[in-house]
Design a protein around this nucleic acid. Structure first.
Lengths: 234, 234
DNA sequence: TAGTCTTATTATGTTATACATAATGCTAAA
DNA sequence: TTTAGCATTATGTATAACATAATAAGACTA
C-alpha cells in the first residue's frame, strides 16, 4: 500500500465505441483462428450483431485494414490477409514529416542492421549467391564517376545481401529505411560532409563472405561503412 | 518499344475518394510546413473546402491519426503531433496474428540489432553507464534459478544497453520486438530446444564495454546470444 | 476585483437513411 | 456453349440529425 492518492482510483474507460469494436474484431480473428482468405461478415451484419451503427463498424474495419489484417473488396466483403507489419509504417516514412532526430536515428539503424546480419548471411549464403555477387561487383563503378549510378549500384549490392540473409522482414524493413537513409545522406542534416575516402570495397566484402567468417565480415562491413559512421560521430 | 499489348494502356486511377483526400491532407501538412501543435481545420471546414462529404474527411483523418500524424480532441479539432512511426505497428505486433515465418524473422531481427549496435554503444557510453551496468550484473541471478526472474534481469540488462546506444528509434523498435521474441523463445515454434549452456555473460559484456573495442563487443555479444543462434540454425 | 459556478458554444462522436458504384452471379438470347 | 445483359449485393459516399465532451463566455458570489 502506498500513499499515492490515485491508488484507489479505477482506470476509467475513455475508449470510444470504435476502439471497442476494433478490439472486439481483433479478438474475433485471434480466437476463432481465422485463416488467410477467410471472409468476415459484412459491415451490416457486424453492425447488427454488435449493436452499433455501420459507421462505427466501418471505422473499425478501416483500422484493421490499415494494420494489414484484412483486405476489403466490393461485394465480397472483407477477407483476412497475412498481416503486413510494415504496411502502414511505410506511409509515415516521409522525410519531410519526420523530425531531425528520428531521421538521424533511422540513418544509424541501417548501419546497425548491416553489421549485425553477418551470421544470417554466412548461414544461408549459397555458391550461386557468391557468383551473383561477383557479377555485381564486376561492374562496380568508380566512386568518382556518376553519383547516381553509384547509388544505384549500392542499392543493388546491399539489396542482394539482404536477399541472401533470408529474412523477408529484415529485407522489407531496410527497404523502407533506404529512402530515409538516402535523404539524410544527401541533405545537410549531418554536420560532417561525406568523405570520398574508400575503405573495404564491395569486392572485399564478397571475398570475406566466400572465404572468411562472420567476425571478419562484421569488421569488414563496419569498415565499409566508415564514411557514414564518420558523419554521425562528430 | 516492346510487343507487350498492355504497354500503351494508361494506369487508371482506382483510388477512392478517401485515398485522394488523405494524400491531399498529407501534402498539406508537408508543404505548409505545419509544426507540431498546429491546428488543422475542422472536419466540416475541410469537407466544404475539399468538396466532399464529412464522412470521407473523417475516414481520411482517421488514417492520419493512425499514422500518428495528428491527434484529435473534441472541440479543439485535430492537432499535428510528432509522427510515431511505430505507433500503429505495435498494434499488429500480436504473436497470435503473425504467421510463423514472420515470428521467426522477428526473433532473428533482435539478434541482428544487438550485435550491430556495438559502435553506437562505444561512442556514447559514459562512466556512469558502466557503473550502472556493473550494479545490474552484480545481482545477476544464476541461470538455474527462477526463470521469470532471469527473464526480468535479461530485459533490464539489455534494455540498459539500448538506452546507452542513444537511439530512441532503435530502443522503441526493440521494445516492440521483445514480446514477440519472448513468445517465440518460449513457444514450441523453434525446433531445437533452448540450451542452458552459458557463454559470454552479462558481466563479460560489461567488461568488454569498459576496456574493449566495438569489434570485441560484437563477438562477445554474438557469443552471448549463441543459445538463440543455435536454435534458429538447425 | 478575483474566483467560482453556470451556461452557451463548438467540434468531434455516433446514428440513421439513402443513393452510387463495382463485383459477382444468374438468366436468357445468339 | 458462350456471351451479353440484368439483378443482386456489399462497399463507397453523401446528408442530416442528435449526443457528448471540452472550451469559452458570462453571471454570480465572496
Amino acid at each position: 500500500m502506498t500513499s499515492n492518492p490515485t491508488e484507489s482510483l479505477i482506470q476509467l474507460d475513455t475508449s470510444s465505441l470504435v476502439d471497442k469494436v476494433e478490439a472486439n474484431l481483433v479478438k474475433l480473428l485471434v480466437e476463432r483462428k481465422l485463416r488467410v482468405g477467410d471472409i468476415i461478415p459484412t459491415e451490416l451484419d457486424l453492425s447488427r450483431s454488435l449493436g452499433v451503427s455501420r459507421t462505427v463498424v466501418r471505422e473499425a474495419l478501416l483500422r484493421l485494414r490499415m494494420m494489414g489484417l484484412i483486405d476489403t473488396k466490393k461485394k465480397k466483403g472483407s477477407v483476412i490477409t497475412s498481416p503486413d507489419i510494415f504496411g502502414i509504417m511505410s506511409k509515415s516514412m516521409n522525410p519531410h514529416i519526420l523530425d531531425q532526430d528520428t531521421l538521424r536515428e533511422i540513418f544509424e539503424l541501417r548501419l546497425v542492421l548491416e553489421i549485425g546480419m553477418a551470421d544470417l548471411l554466412f548461414q544461408r549464403v549459397t555458391p550461386k549467391d557468391i557468383e551473383e555477387l561477383k557479377e555485381i561487383v564486376k561492374t562496380e563503378p568508380d566512386t568518382a564517376k556518376d553519383h547516381i549510378f553509384h547509388i544505384d549500384h549500392e542499392i543493388i549490392f546491399h539489396g542482394k545481401l539482404y536477399e541472401i540473409a533470408g529474412n523477408e522482414t529484415l529485407k522489407r524493413f531496410q527497404k523502407m529505411l533506404l529512402p530515409i537513409f538516402d535523404y539524410v545522406h544527401n541533405s545537410g542534416l549531418l554536420k560532417k560532409p561525406a568523405q570520398i575516402q574508400k575503405f573495404v570495397s564491395h569486392k572485399g566484402l564478397v571475398d570475406i563472405l566466400e572465404n572468411g567468417s562472420p567476425e571478419l565480415f562484421r569488421n569488414g562491413m563496419r569498415n565499409h561503412l566508415e564514411n557514414h559512421f564518420l558523419r554521425i560521430f562528430s
